[in-house]
């Protein structure tokens, strides 16, 4: 099984620890992923701004980069959703069709392709799960509260399986955090307010570690947590699992930025 790792641009540059955790987690689960160096971006930022036409060369580049892999795995449901849903505007060659089908969110890959629904290891903290909209409503990795009460999704199931980890019961299970790509800049006021409200829900309900499967939402929420100097630590779920699978005596993660309150 040849697995290509897609590390979105902002993770590559600003959250390398998430890329590393993704790589190492897959390795611990027996998958040696390959990171093709010529990769850039899925093209979502342009397309969501209305510039789908401009994004087409980026789509083709993505397909060229990953066409040779059986699976493409990314620690970001939003990018995956974009590839699957919106790469319909370029010619549907065999390569395009293959890449669209073969691109998976990390936890969807672990759960659906590898068949892993429980992870060993220990992480003795109260964890608040932020359900990212594109993973949940777009890729159906968790059921939507609009349809039925939110029950166990892929990520919450994996998290619950970790020894010592308790999940926060939130007032609002699956409300959007307000990141929204360029929305976070063009609609700064509403975006910030949405993020503040999400963070507040976690603070009120005792979250120590705020996590999720999509680093873009977490980047936005972390920006708010750090600005307000709140006693929360933001970690991508891959970091939690990767840390949990290490020797319990070792530190949780070696790559967390300094300004965040230590656990």
């Amino acid at each position: 099984m040849k697995v290509g790792l897609f590390i979105p641009c902002y993770i590559d540059q600003f959250y390398p620890q998430v890329g590393i955790a993704t790589y190492q987690l897959l390795e611990k689960l027996g998958v040696k992923a390959d990171f093709p160096r010529q990769q850039t971006c899925c093209g979502q930022p342009m397309a969501n701004t209305g510039c789908e036409q401009d994004a087409k060369p980026v789509y083709r580049h993505f397909v060229d980069t990953f066409a040779g892999y059986d699976y493409v795995v990314a620690p970001s449901g939003s990018c995956v959703y974009h590839v699957r849903k919106h790469y319909d505007v370029v010619e549907q060659t065999g390569a395009v069709q293959h890449v669209r089908q073969a691109t998976y969110d990390l936890f969807d890959f672990i759960t659906s392709v590898m068949g892993v629904t429980e992870l060993p290891g220990r992480f003795p903290h109260q964890v608040g799960l932020h359900l990212s909209c594109h993973g949940q409503r777009g890729l159906h990795q968790a059921n939507e509260s609009e349809m039925t009460p939110v029950r166990e999704g892929q990520l919450s199931r994996l998290l619950r399986s970790v020894d010592g980890l308790t999940l926060t019961e939130l007032n609002r299970n699956d409300e959007c955090c307000g990141f929204g790509g360029t929305f976070c800049i063009t609609e700064e006021a509403v975006s910030a307010r949405m993020g503040q409200d999400r963070v507040q829900d976690h603070v009120l309900n005792g979250t120590e570690v705020l996590t999720g499967g999509d680093m873009s939402c977490l980047m936005h929420l972390e920006g708010i947590v750090r600005r307000r100097q709140l006693p929360l630590r933001v970690m991508h779920a891959a970091e939690i699992f990767n840390a949990a699978l290490q020797q319990p005596s070792k530190p949780v993660s070696t790559y967390v930025p300094g300004a965040v309150a230590a656990l």
């Binding site: 590390i7 902002y10 993770i11 590559d12 540059q13 600003f14 959250y15 390398p16 620890q17 998430v18 890329g19 590393i20 790589y23 990171f35 160096r37 976070c184 800049i185 700064e188 910030a192 993020g195 503040q196 980047m219 936005h220 972390e222 920006g223 708010i224 750090r226 600005r227 790559y255 930025p257 300094g258 300004a259």
Partner: peptide, 24 residues
């Protein structure tokens, strides 16, 4: 930078993921 009105920017790490990967 409208981002920074209510949010901190990510703390820039010394090394990107691709640099780390190259070393691995």
């Amino acid at each position: 930078n409208p981002w920074a009105k209510a949010r901190e920017l990510p703390e820039p790490p010394k090394q990107s993921f691709r640099d780390w990967y190259a070393q691995q």
